[in-house]
């Protein structure tokens, strides 16, 4: 079904493009929000990606490669949005939430730590994390979406994962030390 819409849209059928956009935009929006951590910028990035898709669809030779191609356009749009954000200096500040009662048994603690760790990553590393862990793309597919060699995609994903692991491990050690202190 999607392939047929892509083919029709490639040949200028705007109704087919609208149907295609309605179908793929929720996933694009989710990815953009995860990468940018900003609703407004994510809306702009998705709008820009869809416009780019419409304009450039005639150049897509293989309709079956539409998903990877659209992710590539989206990641580029997110990078542009990130640059725009830095330019106008409206970078969202990280909430420093020294929760006085950390709850290691739930996912609340993870959420705060991962949020903090994620903001340490460069945009291209964030993209690799989201494409891999949220969309389930392989490193080869990530490389295709990011327009980089497979080795570079692997390296970005590895570094990003290690950064997040470091944040989680540090928090786990803190929690254990705290628990040990109470017990002792």
């Amino acid at each position: 079904m999607q392939t047929e819409l892509v083919e029709a849209a490639r040949h200028g059928d705007h109704d087919a493009f609208e149907a295609l956009a309605v179908s793929v935009s929720p996933r694009l929006y989710a990815v953009a929000r995860l990468i940018l951590r900003d609703t407004y910028l994510a809306e702009d990035a998705v709008q820009e990606t869809l416009v780019h898709i419409w304009r450039a669809l005639p150049s897509l030779r293989d309709a079956a490669r539409f998903d990877g191609w659209s992710y590539r356009l989206l990641v580029n749009a997110c990078a542009d949005a990130g640059r725009q954000r830095r330019r106008i200096a409206t970078e969202l500040r990280v909430v420093t939430t020294p929760t006085t009662m950390p709850d290691p048994s739930s996912e609340l603690a993870d959420r705060e730590q991962l949020e903090r760790g994620f903001r340490l990553l460069k945009p291209e590393q964030r993209a690799a994390v989201v494409l891999h862990y949220y969309l389930g793309l392989s490193t080869r597919e990530i490389a295709d979406a990011l327009g980089v060699p497979v080795g570079t995609a692997k390296s970005r994903l590895h570094y990003a994962t290690e950064t997040l692991r470091g944040v989680l491990d540090a928090d786990d050690r803190g929690t254990q030390a705290s628990a040990g202190g109470h017990a002792g």
């Binding site: 989710a30 709008q47 416009v51 989201v130 949220y134 994962t161």
Partner: peptide, 29 residues
């Protein structure tokens, strides 16, 4: 760690796009 990252992203993801984004996109295209 992989599971924790994946769970976090799943929980954070919102796959509901505001109508206005598509409306403005189609106005342009």
């Amino acid at each position: 760690t992989d599971e924790r990252i994946a769970r976090w992203l799943d929980a954070e993801a919102i796959e509901v796009i505001p109508d206005r984004v598509l409306e403005r996109t189609f106005e342009r295209t």
